[in-house]
């Protein structure tokens, strides 16, 4: 961490263009409690209205403003420059592992397509239950999915994942984490089907457990642990045909 309170100008390198682009340097005045999103917004308002980036809530609820900050994917609205600036310099780029539309905005379609491919949607049972399902909070399955259900789909883990970078077909931590919640959801009508869909090399079996997803998840979730749970069930599925 660098003390930047007595410095006035911050040098900011920002990726410009699509995947064939290059970094452009700006000088930005430093303010108290300034976030990375504040810096980007200041550049767009005062220096270059053409700068493209994406954000919505500004308070860490939507996950829209995720970018690569000093080489790591982060929510820019929840990242104060004092925690990331080194040598009075800040480098910002679009999220890794996704097509770049322009500057800091990536195309999130491949990310969400993989949620669909993973079958990461709740499947209702055949019959409408007469009463709302009473899920015991201390049941084993509920506890297994407890933390994982908090994912808001920002894509930070997907950008952080090396396996996504290496394997085009790999579903990624977020989609697999979501499937783990469904495999443990007693209301779901096809828990076995959910597992079978991801119990292959494009799914949980290719995870290297590098844990970049767990380290960088802004909500402090642990997709690696969810994937490890899917691996354990896949192992049993391979051995005895049951999960």
């Amino acid at each position: 961490m660098t003390d930047i309170s007595d410095q006035y100008q911050l040098t900011v390198n920002i990726w410009r263009g699509n995947s064939d682009g290059a970094y452009q340097t700006f000088e930005v005045p430093v303010r108290d409690s300034q976030t990375v999103l504040d810096v980007v917004t200041w550049i767009q308002r005062h220096l270059d209205p053409d700068l493209t980036y994406r954000y919505a809530c500004r308070v860490g609820m939507c996950g829209t403003c995720a970018m690569t900050v000093q080489g790591k994917p982060k929510w820019t609205c929840r990242t104060r420059i004092g925690t990331v600036v080194e040598n009075n310099e800040l480098t910002l780029g679009p999220l890794r592992n996704l097509p770049v539309i322009k500057d800091l905005a990536t195309d999130m379609v491949p990310f969400f397509d993989k949620w669909a491919e993973a079958g990461a949607q709740f499947v209702p049972g055949d019959q409408v239950p007469e009463q709302m399902a009473a899920v015991a909070p201390d049941s084993r399955a509920r506890r297994a999915a407890d933390v994982a259900i908090e994912c808001i789909g920002c894509g930070v883990c997907y950008a952080a994942c090396d396996t996504v970078a290496w394997r085009e077909d790999y579903l990624g931590p977020a989609a697999l984490n979501r499937v783990w919640t469904l495999v443990n959801d007693e209301r779901d009508g096809d828990r076995d089907g959910h597992l079978r869909k991801v119990a292959g090399e494009s799914g949980c079996l290719s995870c290297h457990s590098h844990q970049s997803c767990a380290e960088l998840c802004p909500k402090h979730l642990n997709p690696t642990a969810s994937i490890a749970g899917l691996k354990r069930k896949s192992f049993l599925l391979a051995l005895v045909g049951r999960s």
């Binding site: 079978r196 119990a199 090399e201 079996l205 192992f235 599925l237 391979a238 051995l239």
Partner: peptide, 15 residues
């Protein structure tokens, strides 16, 4: 390769 074969390779490598 089918997913079933992929699972078999996964298990074989660990065992």
């Amino acid at each position: 390769m089918t997913q079933r074969q992929e699972r078999l390779l996964y298990v074989l490598q660990r065992l």
